[in-house]
């Protein structure tokens, strides 16, 4: 019998849980950054961009302020080009310039090895020298290969290295919001 993904998957978060987690992350960002005007939410395509948009919306609702958002593409900053069967698609980065004096918060869906975040930090540095860089993720699943830690975490999810985390968001995937853990 062929199993569908849902059959072998464990549901971790549904739409409500994702909404509550991102609202809490938004509050934590407000609490940690009194000067919200200096903050830039830089999403990593494609789900990080959508998560950054949602966090910005929560901040707008509670603080009545529009914070800057941007896109940081990591494909051309990866360290594994030429070793992967499929080349990552490069996209255009969009950040409000200059970055000097600003707090750039990298936003992504899943934090795993940390290599994507390292690439994102390199990419941001090529646009300028922000005052600080922070990291916000929906899910931290562990298994870091670099000394990187998130400042804001929607959900800590202890997982086996052999497992996979699947995030689905309505706007990027055309499926209901959900996080699943599954074995291949």
């Amino acid at each position: 019998m062929k199993q569908t993904k849902q059959d072998s998957s464990v549901p971790i978060m549904d739409a409500d849980a994702i909404r509550r987690a991102l609202r809490r992350v938004a509050h934590e960002i407000v609490e940690r950054n009194p000067d919200l005007k200096s903050v830039v939410l830089a999403g990593i395509p494609s789900r990080g961009v959508e998560i950054a948009r949602r966090i910005a919306e929560f901040i707008r609702a509670s603080e009545k302020i529009d914070i800057d958002t941007g896109i940081v593409d990591v494909a051309m900053h990866r360290d594994d080009v030429g070793t992967r069967a499929e080349l990552p698609v490069v996209r255009e980065s969009k950040l409000p310039l200059p970055l000097e004096g600003r707090t750039v918060i990298i936003v992504d869906d899943v934090l795993f090895t940390g290599r994507t975040v390292r690439a994102a930090m390199d990419a941001i540095s090529s646009f300028g020298r922000p005052a600080r860089i922070q990291l916000a993720v929906l899910v931290d699943r562990g298994h870091r290969e670099l000394p990187i830690r998130a400042d804001y975490v929607g959900k800590n999810l202890p997982s086996a290295a052999s497992e996979k985390v699947r995030v689905r968001l309505g706007q990027t995937d055309g499926e209901p919001d959900a996080v699943w853990l599954f074995k291949e």
């Binding site: 051309m76 900053h77 990866r78 360290d79 080009v81 030429g82 255009e92 980065s93 390199d122 090529s126």
Partner: peptide, 16 residues
């Protein structure tokens, strides 16, 4: 995407 690299302060990426 690569055209935009030319507008950055550091016009160099480690891709190759």
């Amino acid at each position: 995407a690569f055209k935009q690299v030319g507008t950055r302060e550091i016009k160099k990426v480690p891709a190759l």
